[in-house]
Design a protein around this nucleic acid. Structure first.
Length: 471
RNA sequence: GGUCCCAUCGUCUAGUGGUCAGGACGCUGGCCUCUCACGCCGGAAACAGGGGUUCAACUCCCCUUGGGACUACCA
């Protein structure tokens, strides 16, 4: 591999489900590495498992990649459309005596494996068909003949040199009885033919790497550089899975996360750049390197993701935030078509929501004609005494000429002052009257966003409520 | 069972033989304040254990322990 050779990385998911968190980080690392080096990022769908692969999954994975902003330069290539190439390579190995047909029944193999395990022996293929010189028959699979002496060393960019005794490796199947290649073979052929220079993938593949190295060598291909990134674990330190909560990238979208938050969170799982926590995409591309990728597994921590998401919501330009909010508002049955209102609502709430869903939930009162009062809030603040103040405030507001944040603030303060009260004693009843809750954005912000008429109407409703329930 | 990988606060991590072991999330005390947030200031919190090597180990080596991955005609 010459130094001048362009870096080429790839992400090669199997379309047997959605894009999950771990896969997304692998894709991200590959993408960042390629972008940092000015190389190319290739997307290849590994769909040689005809039974489990689905088009919906492919679609879902592509959508998730797109949402995250991980654009690919080539592909998507489909491994299933390359089986003629794989078969040709299998044939080549067969002809060169580096592979052989195997007619052992899968059930029989499974049996032997179980027995070996039970007896404490290693469950590797016993080589029954190795010397039988079988020719092609209907249900024959093809096995690669692994050397049973010597060692294979994997030079991993993250973990360093890892050595394996070849006698630990068994004669793996490279072509199934159905004529389709298996993963370990197809991945080698495709990576080689697509001239992938750096294979960046999950740690769970390290044990496959020596066999793949042997395959590269048998096929006469240069061996790419490998970088095995550590796993992402759940809170119980086992491999992240559904039982740890949401693992689908798109589920995070639906829960109201911004893609840049997820990207920023994911990149910091295993990679770091000094003490920096917040990274723009530009910075990531500039700083990313494999040397700074750690060796140990990382636990997925929802709290930190929430913090980052909150950060990016605060950072989000208002117009984009409104766009991002639309599906969430609609889901709640709200009507956000008044663009100006929607925008002001987003501005009022962007500093107090960790997710878009939280923002939507907190914004309901802005859009409703009739609000519901939280029982404890009404109990505590919508009192007979408050009714008097509220009535006076409504009158004051309708006479208010400067209906702005500042004007309202001045009015409320002087109103409270005249009655010899602290602002808080009128702010809370007013807040409950306007929002139905005790926690909300600033009173003045709410009033400006809702508009004078609605505010007056809502205060009147609250007064009505009080006279009906108190007095 | 075998093979391989990993090991700094609860979590994500900085550290590359000599540091009061730093930052972030979370937790927590305070300030700000019309509530809730935001923001600001402070606090508690870690080098798994044992051997070496060295004048000196979080840092290098070995062992133990603990965790994880793989062990398919899945990828």
């Amino acid at each position: 591999m010459s130094e001048k050779q362009k870096i080429r990385t790839r992400f090669a998911p199997s379309p047997t489900g959605y894009l999950h968190i771990g896969g997304a980080r692998t894709a991200l690392f590959n993408w960042l590495f390629a972008r940092h080096k000015g190389g190319r990022f290739i997307l290849r769908i590994e769909d040689t498992d005809q039974l489990r692969s689905t088009e919906e999954s492919t679609r879902a994975i592509l959508d998730a990649m797109t949402w995250l902003g991980l654009n690919w330069d080539e592909g998507p290539f489909f491994q299933s459309q390359r089986v003629d190439i794989h078969r040709r390579m299998v044939k080549k190995l067969l002809e060169e005596g580096k592979a052989y047909y195997c007619t052992c029944a899968p059930e029989e193999l499974e049996d032997k494996r179980k027995r070996a395990l039970a007896e404490g022996r290693k469950p590797k293929y016993d080589g029954t068909c190795r010397e039988r010189k079988l020719t092609k028959t209907a249900h024959a699979a093809v096995r690669f003949q692994c050397p049973d002496t010597g060692t294979t060393i994997v030079h991993d960019l993250i973990k360093g040199a890892i050595s394996f005794n070849n006698d630990e490796l068994d004669d793996l199947i490279i072509e199934r009885a159905d004529g389709f290649p298996t993963y370990n073979f197809a991945v080698v052929v495709d990576d080689a033919l697509m001239e992938i220079t750096h294979v960046i993938r999950g740690d769970d593949h390290v044990n496959n790497t020596p066999r793949q190295t042997l395959l590269y060598q048998a096929l006469g291909y240069p061996v790419p550089r490998f970088a095995h990134v550590p796993m992402i674990l759940g809170a119980d330190k086992t491999r992240l899975s559904k039982r740890h909560g949401a693992t689908s990238v798109m589920a995070y979208k639906e829960m109201g996360y911004l893609p840049e938050a997820l990207v920023n969170y994911l990149v910091r799982l295993g990679w770091s750049h000094g003490d920096q926590e917040i990274f723009s995409l530009k910075e990531l591309i500039e700083y990313f390197c494999l040397e700074a990728v750690g060796k140990s597994a990382a636990v997925f921590n929802q709290e930190k993701l929430l913090w980052l998401n909150q950060h990016y919501i605060k950072q989000c330009p208002e117009d984009r935030l409104v766009e991002e909010m639309m599906p969430f508002w609609k889901n709640l049955g709200l009507d956000p078509s008044d663009r100006k209102l929607a925008r002001n609502v987003a501005i009022d709430l962007k500093e107090r929501a960790r997710t878009l869903q939280e923002l939507a939930d907190a914004s309901v009162f802005y859009f409703q004609d009739e609000i519901a009062y939280a029982p404890e809030a009404a109990e505590k603040f919508l009192t007979a005494e408050a009714a008097g103040h509220l009535r006076a405030i409504a009158d004051g507001i309708s006479a208010l000429t400067d209906y702005s944040k500042e004007g309202i603030e001045v009015f409320l303060r002087s109103f409270a002052g005249q009655r010899g009260m602290k602002l808080k004693f009128i702010a809370q009843p007013l807040r409950v009257a306007l929002t139905g809750r005790t926690a909300s954005p600033g009173i003045d912000d709410i009033m400006v966003t809702m508009g004078k008429d609605r505010v007056i109407r809502r205060i009147a409703k609250a007064v009505e409520h009080i006279t009906r329930h108190r007095a």
